[in-house]
Computed example of a mutant assay.
Amino acid sequence: MKIKQLCFVSGVALATLGTSAAQAALVVVPTGLNPGDQYRLVFVTSGTRNATSSNINDYNTFVTNQVTGSALATQLTTAGFNLGTITWKAIGSTPTVAARDNTGTNSLSTGVPIYLIDGNRVANNNADFWDGSLKHPINLQPNDVTTGVDFVWTGSSSNGTGYDSFQLGGLYSEYVIAGRADSVVFSGWIAETTDVYSTAKSLYAMSSVLTVLGNQPPAPVTVPESSSLLGFITLGGLMLGGAVRKARK
């Protein structure tokens, strides 16, 4: 009877292992980079705001505040970065400032690789970032939540300049261009639709240039959730039970 009960419990453990999802941490030092290599990070904000201001600093302050106290901030600190030396800029254009200039990614300069905060590469350099498509959507928030079909204020065209008449702040009308956080091609990520600028939406954010330090720990590995750990423990019990039965024969 005890052996049957053990088999039953172990079966439950295997089911748990089969259905339990893995929990992965944010990745702020992408794999494959060496000490001295430079790169940038991007994310989409969890918070939302309107697009009525024509002052780009209002949006820069907004995205910066999204990092404060977040899981991203914790991960950056753990990796050895000084948060006070990292600046965050909105990937957005007002009537007087273009997104590529606000973020320091004008394609006239080569720039550095750009990564999502989970380690996925978004673009190889400045020109690649502003060529109309991305290698991976900017769909992860600083609290480690992946967005779906969320529209994001940008006021920008795919080449990083202001979208005629639809920049942040509404130069000629109350409408501003927005992108889609789940999109990577046909400029949809940055210029998908327009909406009234009083509507609340997220924004994209980009870091200043980061440098891999020599003493930074390796990127975190995927670890099982607590339910999976319980499954492993129970499975270990099954293996032990099998060994006991063999010993009794």
Rank of each mutant, 00 (worst) to 15 (best):
L6P: 00
F232K: 06
S227C: 00
L210Y: 06
S228V: 02
V209C: 11
N102K: 06
N57Y: 13
Q66H: 02
G111F: 11
L108C: 07
Y59G: 03
T222H: 01
T68R: 13
D101M: 06
E192A: 11
K201G: 00
T96W: 02
G92A: 13
V9L: 14
S198R: 08
P137H: 03
I91T: 09
S183K: 04
A71F: 00
P95W: 11
S107V: 07
L134A: 06
N34I: 06
V152P: 02
A25S: 12
N34H: 12
L116R: 14
V97E: 11
D118W: 10
V244D: 14
L26Y: 02
V244P: 09
Q141Y: 01
A15T: 00
Y204F: 12
T87C: 02
Q141P: 00
T194F: 09
D128P: 02
V212Y: 05
S107R: 12
S187K: 15
T147P: 04
L230G: 00
W130M: 02
N102T: 10
F186Q: 14
V27F: 11
T87I: 08
N60E: 04
G18K: 04
V67Q: 02
N50G: 11
L26H: 03
A243K: 03
A98W: 13
L76Q: 05
V221W: 00
L238F: 15
Q216W: 01
S158I: 07
F232W: 13
G104E: 08
L134Q: 03
D118M: 05
V42N: 04
H136T: 15
V176A: 10
R245W: 07
S202Y: 01
P113T: 05
P218I: 09
S165E: 12
V244M: 12
V12I: 14
S20Y: 00
V244L: 14
N65E: 11
G170R: 03
N57W: 08
S20E: 07
G36Y: 05
D150A: 09
S10P: 10
V29S: 04
A205Q: 07
K89S: 07
S133A: 08
Y197L: 05
F166P: 05
T211S: 04
G179K: 01
N60I: 07
G242I: 15
I114S: 13
T110L: 06
R245Q: 15
D58Q: 08
T85L: 13
T161W: 01
L72S: 04
G111W: 13
N124T: 10
E174D: 15
L210I: 00
M239L: 15
A205E: 13
W153R: 12
G18S: 14
A79H: 02
G241V: 00
V63Q: 10
P113K: 05
I91Y: 07
V67L: 00
N50S: 11
I138M: 11
N57I: 03
D58R: 02
V185I: 11
V9K: 09
N65Q: 14
P142K: 03
T85S: 14
Y39N: 04
T78I: 05
Y59D: 05
F62C: 09
V221K: 09
S207M: 12
P35H: 12
K201Q: 05
S109W: 15
G162F: 07
S227V: 08
T31H: 10
I114L: 06
V176L: 06
A24E: 11
I138Q: 12
A99Y: 13
V223I: 15
R180N: 06
C7S: 00
I138V: 15
V209L: 05
V196C: 03
E192C: 01
T96I: 07
